[in-house]
Computed example of a mutant assay.
Amino acid sequence: MSVTASHRAGPARAGVLAGALSVLAAHLAALPAAAQGRSCTVTPYTDPPRQVLSCPDGFTLSAESGSSYRLIDRNRDGRPEAAELDGRGLLVDAPPRRGGFQIMTPHAIASVRGTVWAVDVTASRTSVFVQTGAVSVRRPGGPAVILGAGDGVDVEAGTAPLEVKRWGVERAAGLLGRFGR
């Protein structure tokens, strides 16, 4: 599965979201019958505007309105192992499972085995926040830092060491609120 979903804010948002969902549904329907029984479903929400991909193994991926991302299903089993995120945000709720989940952005690579975490991408920065569990974050080709529950990191261009910080309640709630959390 390689699906690109791009959403725009404003009056056309509902049409764009519906279009992205139909593309995802078409890709899911094209999977072999054996994979379809194990594949994920997509549900749109309006408050706040987002779409939620739910898989039978308990994995969920929430994409806020305006997000630009591509899901990656390397083994074509109907469940994504990774996402490329170019703009806005994704929230991942990944139960411990074989292979974990990874989000790749222009600035960072974040990987997990089982946790709840969010990634926000702007033109100049990727921010990662962990609600529960632990996440490894690194620049492409750079050393990783490990974030625990309540920790976040801002990854900007350059080579300066990544600095893990305890996020304040306001900043964490602001990001998580974009996903209805």
Score class of each variant (00 low, 15 high):
residue 9 A to S: 13
residue 9 A to Y: 08
residue 11 P to Y: 04
residue 13 R to N: 05
residue 15 G to P: 00
residue 16 V to E: 15
residue 16 V to H: 12
residue 16 V to K: 06
residue 17 L to N: 02
residue 17 L to A: 15
residue 21 L to H: 09
residue 22 S to L: 15
residue 22 S to H: 12
residue 22 S to A: 15
residue 26 A to Q: 11
residue 26 A to N: 08
residue 26 A to H: 10
residue 26 A to W: 05
residue 28 L to S: 12
residue 29 A to E: 13
residue 29 A to D: 15
residue 30 A to E: 12
residue 31 L to R: 09
residue 31 L to N: 06
residue 31 L to G: 07
residue 31 L to P: 06
residue 32 P to W: 05
residue 32 P to A: 09
residue 33 A to M: 07
residue 33 A to V: 15
residue 34 A to K: 11
residue 35 A to C: 10
residue 36 Q to M: 04
residue 37 G to L: 15
residue 37 G to W: 04
residue 38 R to K: 13
residue 41 T to F: 02
residue 42 V to G: 08
residue 44 P to A: 15
residue 46 T to S: 13
residue 47 D to M: 09
residue 50 R to W: 00
residue 50 R to T: 03
residue 51 Q to C: 11
residue 51 Q to P: 00
residue 52 V to P: 02
residue 55 C to D: 01
residue 55 C to N: 06
residue 56 P to R: 08
residue 57 D to C: 09
residue 57 D to E: 09
residue 60 T to I: 01
residue 61 L to D: 00
residue 64 E to W: 10
residue 64 E to Y: 02
residue 66 G to S: 09
residue 66 G to K: 05
residue 67 S to L: 05
residue 67 S to W: 01
residue 68 S to Y: 08
residue 68 S to F: 08
residue 68 S to D: 13
residue 69 Y to H: 12
residue 69 Y to L: 13
residue 70 R to S: 14
residue 70 R to L: 12
residue 73 D to N: 07
residue 73 D to S: 03
residue 73 D to R: 07
residue 75 N to G: 03
residue 76 R to A: 14
residue 77 D to M: 11
residue 77 D to L: 06
residue 78 G to D: 07
residue 79 R to V: 15
residue 81 E to K: 04
residue 81 E to C: 10
